[in-house]
Each structure stands twice: as C-alpha cells, then as structure tokens.
Design a binder for these strands. Structure first.
Lengths: 185, 185
DNA sequence: CTCGAAGACTTTAGCACTAAACTTAGAAGG
DNA sequence: CCTTCTAAGTTTAGTGCTAAAGTCTTCGAG
C-alpha cells in the first residue's frame, strides 16, 4: 500500500485552516468574526471534555456535576425543585426526574415532598453531595488556572470584560427594530 | 397566595451573582479566572440554542448541520468516511452510521462503498446538502455579526487573539513536568 | 361545597447516543 | 494458497434525553 496515487488521508483542520476553508466556500465571511466564534466553539468543546474527565475521576458524571453546581449556587440550605433545576440546566422536567432518582440513589441529594405544598418536591444537597462539589470545584479551578496560565492579569481582565459584553448582548437581547437577537429565550 | 411568609421563588443568578456565590462557598476561587470561564460557558450555551433555532428553520437539526460543516471543511469533492466524521465530531462510529442513514434519506449526503477499498464507505455532500450548508452559513454569519456588534474592530482582534492563545494552550498541551493539561485528547 | 382548571411532577413511547460484540475486506507471513 | 491480523463499519443492548399523556394537589368560581 505504498502507491503514490494513494490518498494521503485527510487531517483535522487547524483553526486557521478552518477559517481559510470557510472563506473559500463563502466569500462574505468576516475572518475576524469567524476567528472569535470558531475559537469560542473549539475552546468550549475541549473544556467540556476536560471537565468530564476530571469529574469522572470523582465517580460522577458531567450531568451530575451540573446539578451539584446549581444547588450550591442556590445557596444554603441548597434546595431547589426538580422543575427549577430542569429550567436552569435547559432540560425537560422529565429528564430531571430520572437524574434526581439516580443522584438520590448515590446519596448526593435527597428528594422529599414539600410539607407546605404537597404538589412540590424539594431536592436538597446532602453533605456527601456538597463534598463532591467541593472536590470537583478544586479540580476545575486548578484546570482553569492552568488554562489561563499564559495570560497576564491585565489580559485576563480584558478577556473577561469582552466576554461579559458579548454575554450581555446575548442575554438581554431586546427587540430592536431589525435585530435578530430578539428570540434567544 | 399573597402570604408574606411565602417563598419569593428562587431566581436564576446573573453572572456576577454566580461568581459571588461561588466565592462564598469556595474561598480559593480567583474571581478573574472564574469570570472568564463562566462567561465562556454561558456564552456557548446561549449560542448553541440560537444556532439550533436558526437551522431548525431550514428543516435540519444542529447535529446535521455539524456534519454538513465538516464535509464542507474537507473541501471539494466534499467526501469523508463515517469514521473520520465521527472522530472530528467527537462521536462514536456507531452514532455516525445512524446519522448518515438519516441524512442520506433526506438527500443531504450520499453513502457509497469505496470501489478501491471495499471496506471503506464514502459519505459525500449532495448539491442539496451544499445548498443547506450555505443557507445555514448565511444565517449563522448574520447572527455572529450581531453578536459582535458592540465590539470595535480592535476589540474583536484582541478578543480573537486571546481566545486563540487559550485554544493553543488546550490543543497543544504538551507533557510539562507538573502540567495538568497533558491528557486532553 | 363541589366542580373545574391550573400547576408540578411523573410516566410512557420513541429517538440518539455509547460501549461492546460482530462482520467483512484487505494486508502480512508462512 | 491459507491462516491470522488489522481496519472500517454495522449491529445490539442499555442509558439518557424529549414530547406528550397522565396523576395528584391546590386554587378559584359558582
């Protein structure tokens, strides 16, 4: 199989190759915009893989870690209903029913009926769940520190500020005349 | 339901509230790092929702759009094997078998055995698939332009450059002595 | 007081994914 | 040749998700 006519085998394009390829196929593309957007996408995919590996070492899935984070964010006493959890994580309530089942079985949370309103259910973080969250948080924060290692303090500040401005644009998209960012939620 | 003892109902924390909450629960957190990382995460989630709605208007799913993009990136004649597609999209080959089935049924791609090596399968973009890609690309690029609207040209450049540096760190993570970024792939 | 309606979950059916076993074509060696 | 090995896809079993229907509590109107 050493023929010279053999295909060399395709290779995964680098970011620069990707932008160049899109420009060949689609003339109207602004390379500066594309660089920002493509880098964001790639970065996030890599980071999610990395987070997944880290929390797997603690015996929990990325999905479970998201629930732990959401409960901690709610603040003491670390309680939320399944519906609220589902809304914040972008899932259907049905999916959350099963996720909470699993996590309750693993002792990460408890699930109880609200005595004041028996239609509601309260999902509450256990001490074990809180400990898992803390361990995951330590690993994540070490990883994130590594990720930003090459950036100076000023650069980190600038990056954070620019990202926050993009986020504001996407989170408070108001109905401007011809705006296309009006229907994100 | 107008009792003053009634819970006001929890609300989704803003980015600043989120960082403040994490700092209360985890003293070692660097707020500058957390701002960058959390903004990245939120931004990407919002963007994926937005992309999903846009391509849905064209009658394709986000998953199918990813395949179209990957084939276009490969360049003319827009061919790749299912295994290669799976690798680039971070899926198992099994998942790609079914995805290609669907897309071939919809006329977006063709699937044929390679005559030179009958173990291989060639997935090739159809004209209809290429047209769908172009329509999706136009919508995406309008959206992305809107997203970056508030940033000046210089700011876009700075942002792109900083993101590329993060990406480099995560993509070419080499085995440094105590580095934790060594096992990403 | 009773009925109807709404809200908050749960259940069911179906789809997309992963992991692992299986199939088949080409490559390598005796 | 004929066997074995490897590579590329497909198939199977099981998991987690969505959409839609179902259940149960609470609220409001007659």
């Amino acid at each position: 199989m050493s023929e010279s006519t053999e295909e060399p085998g395709p290779h995964e394009p680098s970011l620069d190759e990707q932008i160049a390829a899109y420009q060949r196929e689609f003339r109207d593309l602004d390379p500066q915009v594309e660089q920002v957007v493509s880098a964001l996408g790639r970065l996030n995919r890599r980071m999610n893989v990395a987070y997944g590996r880290q929390v797997a070492a603690l015996g929990i899935s990325n999905a479970e870690w998201e629930v732990l984070k959401t409960l901690v964010l709610a603040g003491a006493p670390y309680r939320l209903g399944p519906g609220e959890l589902a809304k914040r994580l972008g899932l259907t309530p049905a999916a959350m029913t099963h996720r909470v089942d699993r996590m309750a079985g693993e002792g990460l949370v408890t699930r109880d009926r609200d005595e004041n309103n028996r239609v509601r259910v309260i999902v509450e973080l256990t001490d074990e769940g809180r400990t898992k969250w803390l361990e995951a948080m330590r690993m994540a924060s070490d990883f994130e520190e590594d990720l930003l290692q090459d950036l100076s303090g000023d650069e980190r500040g600038v990056l954070g500020e620019l990202l926050v401005r993009l986020l504001r644009r996407v989170e408070h998209a108001q109905p401007d005349a011809g705006g296309r960012l009006t229907d994100l939620d």
